[in-house]
């Protein structure tokens, strides 16, 4: 299947396509931190006065949809090339976090296995006070020859 990357960009980049909320629980934050090998009490001990999520906790959030409707690629045929998390404020137990998704960028690269489409899925997170807490860019790669 041939894909016109510029046309896909024009149709999908910059448009919000999902909004999901997440309730933050202390026990989950502590276990997540333990699994990452954290050693600091502010991430492990819910009784710590500065208890909060580890810096990459927002990387774990997924929306109800991973790609916009009518996107010309299947998420199941993509692979996860990486994640970038920017932390703007702590995420704490009791918070209600809202994540809004849009496609931030689409570009093509050619590697040994042929042309690939990179999709940068961006989720921006705010808490219950509407304060921005994190931005996560998720880079998805799709082999154009397999679509």
């Amino acid at each position: 299947m041939q894909i016109d990357i510029e046309a896909v960009k024009k149709e999908h980049v910059g448009f919000a396509f999902d909004e999901t909320t997440f309730d933050i629980k202390a026990e989950t934050l502590a276990n997540y931190a333990r699994g990452c090998g954290e050693t600091e009490a502010r991430f492990l001990d819910p009784g710590h006065p500065d208890f909060r999520a580890v810096p990459n906790y927002a990387s774990n959030f997924h929306g109800r949809r991973n790609l916009p409707e009518n996107f010309p690629a299947d998420i199941l045929r993509s692979f996860d090339a990486g994640k970038c998390v920017e932390n703007l404020a702590p995420i704490r137990p009791g918070d209600t976090i809202t994540g809004r998704s849009h496609i931030h960028d689409i570009y093509e690269k050619t590697g040994r296995s042929g042309p690939m489409m990179f999709v940068v899925h961006r989720m921006e997170f705010t808490n219950q006070d509407d304060a921005k807490v994190a931005v996560v860019d998720w880079r998805l790669v799709m082999r154009l020859g397999e679509m």
Partner: peptide, 24 residues
């Protein structure tokens, strides 16, 4: 990605990891 953050915290307790970009 979380292991990277934990190793940074071990090296610099109390620091803030403001941005963490990981390539798989």
């Amino acid at each position: 990605q979380g292991i990277f953050a934990a190793k940074i915290h071990e090296w610099a307790p109390g620091c803030e990891v403001e941005k963490l970009d990981t390539v798989f």
